[in-house]
Design a protein around this nucleic acid. Structure first.
Lengths: 121, 121
DNA sequence: TCAATATCTCAATAAGTGTTGAGATATTGA
DNA sequence: TCAATATCTCAACACTTATTGAGATATTGA
């Protein structure tokens, strides 16, 4: 469930370049996720403490989840939270304003099957 | 067009309680918008300089637009930018992950007419 | 158990953000 | 033109956030 407070945390987490890139990377990585070290490698070799800071921030905001696997800690995208954030924006912004959600839903057609006629009435 | 840089600005703008509330207020207010003073009144009587700071921030991020009307400056929500931000999240997060966009599209049905079967394939 | 590996935690510092209050600018009606 | 109104701009300050480097913790394989 996404309330205003959680949405604020999510927006704050996504408003930092490194963290936004981490989320995109982890979404692309899929459910298998990536180790903190591998993510750091992908972020121009960011220091381990810097990675730890940003990954903790993202986990606190609920946008990623972690699990230990041997020596490594594996992070993966929390897809339900991303869905809930999109839903929050939709609910807040769509009400009475089809010109907001219609283009957004139409954009899905570039990556998904979306029937003609989807969107706000 | 929403690129990473613009998305970062938009997330930063929306990550502050007063600004998020201003956006929600202006979306609800519709195309007619509201004067800076009226918005300040709605924000627990926030000072004019504080309003000016946050409204400028939102305008810089492209989430609101302004026009002068006599002594007042009228702000209104930039709906296309909100749509573009949702689209950005959808594109980044939906690709290959129907479990993200399907719930988001399904959520639209609470405020819009969305045909059954919408969402990712 | 020991050394190596992976990550986290903490303190210090640098950089950025939000609020306030004083004052400047633009517009209107008398 | 003048006073009143609406909003913006600026400097100062407090607060928060991001980065770094040193060191602590947890796990593994020899």
């Amino acid at each position: 469930m996404m309330n205003e407070g959680k949405a604020l945390e999510a927006f704050a987490a996504l408003s930092q370049e490194t963290r936004l890139r981490i989320v995109r990377l982890l979404v692309a990585a899929g459910p298998g996720g990536m180790s903190a070290g591998a993510i750091g490698e992908a972020m121009d070799g960011a220091s381990s403490s810097r990675m730890s800071f940003h990954l903790s921030h993202l986990e606190q905001a609920g946008l990623v989840i972690s699990r230990r696997d041997g020596r490594s800690i594996i992070y993966s995208a929390a897809l339900p939270s991303l869905a809930a954030l999109i839903e929050f924006l939709m609910r807040d912004c769509c009400q009475g304003h089809p010109e907001v959600c219609n283009p957004a839903v139409a954009a899905l057609s570039s990556c998904c099957e979306v029937p003609k006629g989807s969107g706000c009435a």
